[in-house]
Write a protein that binds this DNA or RNA. Structure first.
Lengths: 186, 186
DNA sequence: GCTGCTACGTTTAGACCTAAACATAGTCGA
DNA sequence: TCGACTATGTTTAGGTCTAAACGTAGCAGC
């Protein structure tokens, strides 16, 4: 072996807050222990999902697209606008996602009835692919969160819901999509 | 006005799970109500932070970089390897982030003492910028999570920590960085 | 019938990231 | 000392996203 290898564990949220207090007493670190674990969990879930999907021949963006259409029920068709709204990305991103999925034969664009809107609808192949993928992804995620007891689970869901409602209300700016990537926080 | 405007609220995690059960009875939806709010909160926090930082003339990636170095304490210098480890991104991303920050005069690359490693250290200007930005970002985030009572806050932090530890243990694959973007889930 | 107005979808430019290929430099054993 | 190996950091290719500019298409008032 060469030399200094293991950089040790990634500092916990509590350690990050403590470091700021040590370096800059008075820094408002109250939010760190809430926000940081949420980011890290989101990243762990996203990374793990990407790994699971890689084997299934589909990526997370396409899974999102097909999922939303599939669970909207028959006739398995939504407008671009609805897709953008429900997947929390911009209309431009949807346009590109649909183009990719269309190129792979997973969806079909049809003119919306009487409107100028465009309906995105599942092809036979797209329907089959999402049917195959959903159970794999959700089953895997179920095992990831299986460590929580039923009580803990219920409690956590309630608290997350409270926080989500609250943050949504306080974020004045349009809830549209903005920042990419994952962050580790200050 | 033209026509159909408001596409309604984004479906809640509970509604998404219910939709799957309606469309595909037996789908393992147990994880949705835990994972989805975590992703949405992460996205809300990231978007809001991006907006706050836009006014401060710095982006989230650079804030991450400067923050990690700043809170490591004197002499405010870390190796590329440590930076990659602590910010949860690849070494290539760090290389690019450092290059950008260096171009803006916020950091300086110096050869590590006796090692072949490269130390990234804050310049006067970088130090001043992070000093100005941290309070703004953390202060803003403190108000976002201020809706939780002290009891709720403590409870939530504990549950998130439990879940994080648990998920980390179950994710067998290397915890390295992989998936970009934010997802809304199946 | 025109003329603005608004909503919607697509296209383009630019930003950032991952993965993988490279380039280097210490380390260790024969 | 030589050579394989390992750790580090940088570069490059490719991908996805946002933001903003465009292009249309219905609608409303005159």
């Amino acid at each position: 072996m060469a030399e200094e290898q293991d950089p040790g564990p990634v500092p916990s949220a509590a350690e990050i807050a403590a470091a700021w207090q040590r370096e800059r007493p008075g820094t408002p670190t109250a939010s760190i222990e809430v926000v940081t674990p949420i980011w890290r969990l989101a990243k762990l879930f996203a990374d793990d999902r990407a790994r699971v999907l890689r084997g299934a021949g589909i990526d997370a963006a396409t899974l999102d697209l097909l999922s939303v259409v599939r669970r909207s029920g028959p006739p398995y068709a939504l407008s671009t606008r609805q897709l953008a709204h429900r997947t929390l990305v911009t209309a431009g991103a949807i346009s590109q996602r649909v183009a990719r999925a269309e190129r792979e034969g997973l969806v079909r664009r049809t003119p919306g009835t009487g409107r100028r809107s465009v309906l995105v609808e599942l092809t036979e192949e797209g329907h089959a692919l999402i049917e195959r993928s959903v159970d794999a992804v959700l089953g895997r995620e179920a095992t990831l969160v299986a460590g929580l007891s039923p009580q803990e689970r219920t409690l956590l869901i309630g608290l997350l819901d409270t926080l989500l409602t609250d943050v949504r209300r306080r974020v004045s700016a349009p809830p549209g999509p903005t920042a990419p990537g994952s962050r580790t926080g200050p």
